[in-house]
Computed example of a mutant assay.
Amino acid sequence: MERDDERLLAEAREGRREALEELLERHQRRIYRFGLKMCRDEEDAKDVLQDTLLAVARGIRDFRGQSSVSTWLYSIARSFCIKKRRRGKYEPAEEQRVGSEGEEEVTRLPDPARPADETLAGRQVEAALEAAIAALQPMYREVLLLRDVEGLTAPEVAEILGLSVDAVKSRLHRARVAVRESVAPRLGIPEPAPARPAGEAACPDVAALFSRHLEGEISSDLCAEMEQHLAGCPRCTARCDSLRATLTLCARSPAPEVPQAVQHSVRQALQRFLTERPPQA
């Protein structure tokens, strides 16, 4: 996709209108998904999509490709999401607060019996994931969305957010653990009650460690220690399995179809802009 983006970008900057339209069309569903999950309001997400695509059209000649097209697009989309937030429209009444020291205050979902209908069960898990992501504070939500839903690298996320890579990863680990805690009861992966002899040390925070492992942050020695612990601790194994399942769900989150009315509105706005100021080399 990146190679195709680069080709379309080069052609768009040379003044080929159809290349610009194709470039915007191929990214519009992902931008719309990001807007929906950040704004939590369909009308706001529509505005974010249209404003983002128009901003890209206006700035296409000045974009020199120092970052990827995806990074550029999400940076613009995020700026419009922030404007929506400053107007106070889309913050939830109650957010899932992630503690400053890594402790999360999590509202656990009920743990009902697993439904016989697997399709229904799948929808329930997806709904639980959506609710868990929506409940995060925006600073954690956007990191999780960009890294685990949209699939950007940690350095790309850092560039978009204007943070260090370390800061991005710190927020990411906390967001992942918080979402896992909410979704786990729906995954059907039982966590056995801890059973350790008196005086034995408590289990490490394996979910956070596993998240750090995925980002290449723990040493081989620590990784070996974690594997040794997991071999003898079914509860921690279940926690890691549920985190892995949660991240798989994030990565598979479908990009919604952009409503036809929105596509029509975006096309009209682009046509007006391009007619008034066609791109030039």
Rank of each mutant, 00 (worst) to 15 (best):
L161R: 14
I133H: 00
D166I: 10
V143T: 15
P138I: 05
R186Q: 11
D111N: 11
G188S: 10
Y140I: 01
L145R: 02
P194G: 11
P115I: 10
R114L: 14
T153Q: 09
L109Y: 02
V106K: 04
V179D: 02
G162C: 08
P155F: 02
E95Q: 15
A132Y: 07
L161E: 07
E105C: 02
E101P: 00
G102K: 03
E101W: 15
E156A: 09
R171F: 07
S170D: 15
R171D: 11
R141C: 10
V165A: 09
P138Y: 14
L187V: 11
R141Q: 15
E94Y: 09
A193L: 08
G99T: 10
A158F: 03
A154R: 05
L187T: 06
E101S: 13
V165G: 07
A131F: 06
L163I: 02
E95N: 13
I189P: 07
A121P: 01
S100Y: 00
E150G: 05
P197N: 04
E95L: 14
R97I: 15
I133Q: 05
E101Q: 14
L144Y: 06
Q137F: 04
A116M: 05
R147G: 04
T119M: 04
L161N: 11
E104L: 13
R141W: 11
A178N: 06
I160M: 10
A175R: 07
A193F: 07
V143N: 10
A134R: 12
I189M: 00
E103D: 15
R174W: 08
E126V: 06
A127Y: 06
A116I: 02
V125G: 02
R186M: 14
G188N: 13
P190W: 00
E142C: 12
A195P: 02
P112I: 01
P192Y: 14
G162A: 10
R196D: 11
V177R: 14
S182N: 09
